[in-house]
Each structure stands twice: as C-alpha cells, then as structure tokens.
C-alpha cells in the first residue's frame, strides 16, 4: 500500500447526556506521499474533528471514535497504545494549529520549546539540538535565528510565530503534516508568505500535507487534491483542477459562487440560503437538500452515496443516471 495515510470509514462523535452524537459519519480518504490535500468545509462540517481524530487528540475529552480505521503507512493508529502514539506525534505525523498566539508556551523561550521536541524524538544532546533548531528556523526564513532562539513568543509577530511553529513541526522530518487553518488568523500578505513557505517545504521534503481550511482561495493556492465536507460527510472529492473547473456538487458550486470575486460586475452574490443543519436534527435524505437550489423529491427521502466518475466523485442524486432520467420524464 503506497498511501501514506488512509482513513477508512471513520465515525466520530461526542458522548452527550442523551447518548452518542455522531459528527463525522463514516468518511474515507487518503493522502499520498508528496501530496497536498485540502479538506474544505464550513464551521460544523467535521473537518477539525477529523484532523484531531487522526492525531488521536480526540479521545480524552467527550469525543469518541466509534468506528473505522486510520492507517498510517499501513498501521492502524487507533490500535496503538498511548505510549507508542506519543512517539509518533511530532516525529511521524505532526500538526499545525490555527492560532499562532496560543500554540506556543508563553513562559518558555522559543529555543527551549524547539529543543524539547528535537531532543525527545531525535535523541540529540542539548548543544546539538540547539544548532539543529537554528538550522530549521533559517529554513523557514526567520532572520537572525540565533537571537530568536532566546526570544519569548510575545516578542514575535503573528507571522513569525507561525513560522516558528512550522519550523518546530517539521524539525523531526515527519512524513505527514496536518495543518488546521494555518493562515486564518494572519493578514493576507503574511498568509501569502506562509502558503508559499509550506509549498516550498513540501517540495523539499516530499512529505504529505493535509490542509484543513474554510477558504477555497487557499485551497486553490497550494492543494493538489481537494475533499469537500458538509455535515460530517464527504460530498465531493477531486483534483484541484477538476474541482475548480467542473464542480459537481451543488454545495461546492454554491461555495464558489458565494465568495466575492475581484473584477466581477455582479451586484448581488449568489448565496446559499439557510444554515448548516444541527447535528441533533439532521434532515432525512441528502443533508444539503434543504438548502439546495436544484433538490428533487428523492433528495429529501434518501441520502445518495458518493458516486465516482474516474477520480472525481460527488454525493449527489443528479449524478445518478437512473434518477436523472426519471426526473426528466417527470418534467417532460
């Protein structure tokens, strides 16, 4: 199996007073070595829960992985004892979080925080780790890296902090990097720099990156393949080119049309009506049907499967030939 990460039928949810509340409903996808995969969705679509499940940072709280497998280089992470998982986190798979302000410990110097990971995972001495950390800081484009090692997080700007975090996360040469909204808290000019940096590092190290974001612009900027999530399900999956040039799911189309585009003469935006359904009260059929502009009667009754056409798949009845024929006959 050449896949770096393979998620199979992952079901995750929360333990509540009224029983188990599923948030991610059996999703399957993979990330190859040397590939940047975008996981897109709005708040509440289950994208962050998915990433936390992969890192197994979801267990302790009220979250629970109910079913499925997460295969990393063929090994199921979910069966690992916690000790083994700790060894993998940071070394094999590592994660960048959204808030560069809170991901670093405010009372420790950058140097101390960077050395800690390196000494733990690579078994270096303090002195070696120090030199090694400086190299990594230089790699992510931090000027005067020696000095930054002595700085505390509050002495750095948001963009700088995110660079430090990236340096830290790639310091042990992980094969898989999960980046959860890495640029959302940053200004556009800084965002452009960080995205470029991630792309460069990916090319240098050939790692696989799973980029979680709500911003389709960011996806287009650096992703090779895209997975669109809605209400805890994958609704579309395709190469970035196919997705942007030929989106198949009405939700994906809606998302693209909702974003204002510079230079467009349109006075009004085509918005998607309504809001994301509440996990307590999901519609019966297709979860997008209540907001869908082209919903048919069957959409409200039965949930469609993910239908594949080559490497492009979407969860929509419109792609089912039989349903489509029936619909046309009814309309004729």
């Amino acid at each position: 199996m050449s896949d770096l990460l393979q998620v199979k039928n992952l079901k995750t949810g929360f333990q509540t007073e009224n029983g188990f509340l599923p948030v991610v409903h059996g999703i399957s996808f993979h990330v190859n070595q040397g590939e940047i995969v975008g996981l897109v969705g709005e708040s509440g679509s289950g994208k962050s829960v998915t990433s936390l499940s992969i890192m197994r940072l979801f267990h302790d709280t009220r979250g629970k992985i109910a079913d499925g497998e997460i295969l990393y280089k063929g090994e199921n992470l979910l069966t690992f004892p916690e000790k083994k998982m700790t060894k993998y986190r940071g070394k094999e798979l590592s994660m960048i979080f959204q808030e560069p302000m809170t991901a670093l410990n405010p009372v420790l110097t950058i140097g101390k925080q960077m050395r800690e990971t390196i000494m733990l995972h690579l078994g270096m001495s303090k002195k070696e780790a120090h030199q090694y950390a400086i190299e990594k800081l230089k790699l992510v484009g931090i000027p005067r890296a020696e000095q930054v090692m002595e700085d505390y997080p509050h002495q750095l700007s948001g963009g700088m902090r995110q660079r430090v975090i990236i340096a830290m996360q790639i310091s042990c040469n992980p094969s898989l990097l999960i980046a959860d909204e890495p640029t959302t808290a940053l200004d556009v000019t800084i965002q452009a720099q960080i995205l470029k940096l991630m792309e460069e590092i990916q090319e240098k190290t050939n790692m696989g990156i799973l980029l979680i974001t709500h911003d389709l612009g960011v996806v287009a900027e650096i992703c090779d393949r895209v997975i669109v999530m809605y209400a805890g399900r994958i609704v579309e999956e395709a190469s970035a080119v196919d997705l942007f040039e030929n989106p198949k799911h009405p939700y994906t189309k809606g998302l693209m049309e909702s974003a204002p585009k510079i230079g467009s003469k349109k006075d009004r935006l085509n918005s998607i009506t309504g809001t994301v359904p509440n996990p307590n009260n999901m519609p019966k059929g297709c979860k997008f049907a209540p907001r869908c502009p082209v919903a048919m009667p069957i959409c409200h009754e039965k949930e469609p499967e993910l239908m594949a056409d080559g490497n492009h798949s979407a969860r929509c009845w419109l792609l089912d030939e039989e349903v489509k024929k029936k619909e046309e006959m009814l309309n004729a």
Binding site: V188, G217, A240
Partner: peptide, 25 residues
C-alpha cells in the same frame, strides 16, 4: 484601486489575495 493601484503597498496587498485558480493551472 483594483485595476490601477498606484501605491506599492496597495500592489502588494492585491497580489497577496488568493485567486480561485488551482495551482496546476
């Protein structure tokens, strides 16, 4: 501003906006 920016900073800002054009294209 958007078609013919004069100031360097405006130009930098405009060039930083992610376009919805996939990387490969």
């Amino acid at each position: 501003i958007f078609n013919n920016p004069q100031h360097d900073y405006t130009k930098t800002l405009l060039s930083s906006i992610p376009q919805m054009i996939p990387k490969a294209r």
